[in-house]
Design a protein around this nucleic acid. Structure first.
Lengths: 156, 156
DNA sequence: GATTGACCTAAAGCTTACTAGAGGAATTAA
DNA sequence: TTAATTCCTCTAGTAAGCTTTAGGTCAATC
């Protein structure tokens, strides 16, 4: 099978995998999660658009930034599905995403600074420490169940 | 059972849970991962030190910053186990941790800036884009399998 | 001394993000 | 046309970080 050629209107899942560096199974998974869509050949095989390369590249970048697939999906939902989004659509989306990134970084910096002034200062009392104010806690990254309680916590 | 009183030399797991805001099961899990240690009563129940409150608080903070339990364990391993660490030990540990936080934030900022100049600029070509240089990719946060290939990726 | 609540262990379940394998059909190169 | 690929759909498994449940024990109070 040729690497470069488009398989008669559209990319096969294998070609898309090669272009993005993702595995075939990962792409199928992303499709099942609604991050990309595909049409089907009469035989039932997936065909993707060229613009899906960019879509999936965005997914990879956003993941590296610590966003979950669900969060990424929210942003991608702003782009037209099926057709190649134009510059305006991409830019609008990118701006919204950048906003989220900034918020995430700001949250990290805040926690870092608080850590500095609480544990780093040597007081060790942690009493009334800003770090333990649950209301201000930055949202956790990563996956898995997070049943962190919002209850006030007493620390010596 | 009294909330405030120490259960005859040491905190029970329930008391520790109450003080930290963690669940009992989470603390048991952390112990199984080596993040805290406990002694046992003649009857087999766990007893923790007061200093474990701070230890677990540190775990919570570090998690919120996006570190895995394994990574957190590496930092905590520098503190003496069983006894309350002194200010010097805490500060040494906090400095090392702060270094990791800074690295993490720097990585995020780098990716953010690259996103700006690649997707955000409107060029949409992504050709030779710095973001797709796998060597520079920041390590992903979160858990789960990451089989991101290091192969060069071709993007239209 | 009995009851009640806290605790114990061990095993299984849940979520996210995938991978791997089985069994079979569609494409494509020769 | 045939053989080699690639692709398809399930189903099941993996890792991290816990929770839940089951069946039973300990400890503090009435």
């Amino acid at each position: 099978m040729q690497n470069r050629a488009l398989t008669k209107r559209g990319l096969s899942i294998g070609q898309l995998a090669e272009r993005t560096g993702l595995s075939v199974s990962a792409i199928r998974h992303y499709e099942s999660e609604g991050l990309v869509m595909s049409s089907r050949t009469p035989g039932g095989q997936r065909r993707f658009e060229r613009s899906d390369i960019r879509r999936l590249s965005f997914v990879m970048i956003a993941q590296e930034l610590g966003f979950s697939l669900a969060e990424i999906g929210v942003h991608l939902a702003q782009l037209p599905a099926g057709t190649a989004p134009d510059i305006t659509a991409w830019n609008r989306m990118a701006r919204g995403f950048r906003h989220d990134i900034d918020a995430r970084i700001a949250g990290l910096e805040l926690l870092r600074d608080r850590l500095d002034s609480c544990i780093g200062c040597g007081c060790l009392s942690l009493k009334k420490c800003a770090l333990y104010n649950p209301r201000d806690r930055a949202k956790r990254f990563g996956t898995g169940p997070r049943y962190l309680r919002g209850d006030p916590v007493s620390v010596d």
